[in-house]
């Protein structure tokens, strides 16, 4: 019932909404379709097995030592149980500080023109958007604005921690991290989700494409429904 193991994996991730830790939310219809196909395949295999048992009573010995291991399921297919085992043993979680600390850091921002941020301070800005704006046109769309950023804590061996967010283009294996260096932020544990309100520090510039945020206030938050930024 290795098909059922894969089906179980998909159902668990779909029912509990944990699939967003692994793939983009837009893959949902494809995952549901795959689960339906796997369910039908499981039913057919189970039915065949049932029929075979019914008919096979008393003939079992003839087949027992049949050296016939090259037909039926291949050995490797046993591994299809592994994803389900992993999901049951290791609590599902999105990528966090461990991966962020080991990733290359934000890609170097490319210069481009940004529309001004919406009126009203503090204004909600995504971490990748903040990084890109800070690196373009001397960060003019951030000057004089109070911003609110949501992300998780990645410890920095060399000083203040980074507020971090991953961007995923297809699945978590291709995640890129974006980070903002905090100044005067609260002391927080790695992987804590937090909303920071503050100002972009223009003077520091963006070494390695990492801008600095002067933290004024902070609120601990729940992880967002999609842990990866758009």
């Amino acid at each position: 019932m290795l098909l059922a193991a894969m089906l179980g994996l998909l159902l668990r991730l779909l029912v509990r909404g944990e699939y967003v830790f692994y793939v983009k939310p837009s893959l949902l219809p494809a995952l549901i379709a795959a689960a339906v196909v796997l369910a039908l395949m499981t039913l057919f295999v189970a039915k065949d097995a049932w029929v075979a048992i019914d008919e096979g009573e008393g003939h079992d010995h003839g087949d027992h030592d049949g050296h016939g291991h090259n037909h039926g399921e291949p050995r490797a297919s046993l591994l299809l149980a592994l994803p389900l085992i992993v999901v049951l043993t290791v609590t599902p979680a999105p990528l966090g500080a461990f991966s962020a600390a080991r990733s290359t850091g934000s890609p170097a921002p490319t210069e481009r023109a940004f529309a001004p941020l919406p009126a009203g301070d503090p204004v909600e800005v995504g971490v990748p958007d903040f990084v890109a704006r800070a690196g373009s046109e001397q960060g003019k769309t951030l000057v004089g604005r109070e911003v609110r950023l949501v992300g998780f804590v990645t410890p920095n061996p060399a000083g203040a921690w980074w507020l971090t967010r991953f961007v995923v283009s297809c699945c978590a294996a291709d995640a890129t991290s974006y980070r903002v260096l905090t100044r005067d932020g609260p002391k927080l544990e790695a992987d804590t989700w937090v909303a920071l309100t503050g100002h972009w520090v223009a003077a520091v510039g963006t070494p390695d494409g990492i801008p600095t945020l002067q933290v004024e206030r902070h609120t601990l938050t729940q992880p967002p429904s999609n842990p990866y930024a758009e």
Binding site: L9, F98, A173
Partner: peptide
């Protein structure tokens, strides 16, 4: 343990992404 967790996330994301295709 976060290293195990990161491994599990990357492993499962490759499998979950590939399954529909």
């Amino acid at each position: 343990s976060t290293g195990i967790s990161a491994f599990a996330t990357v492993f499962l994301s490759i499998i979950v992404q590939a399954t529909p295709f």
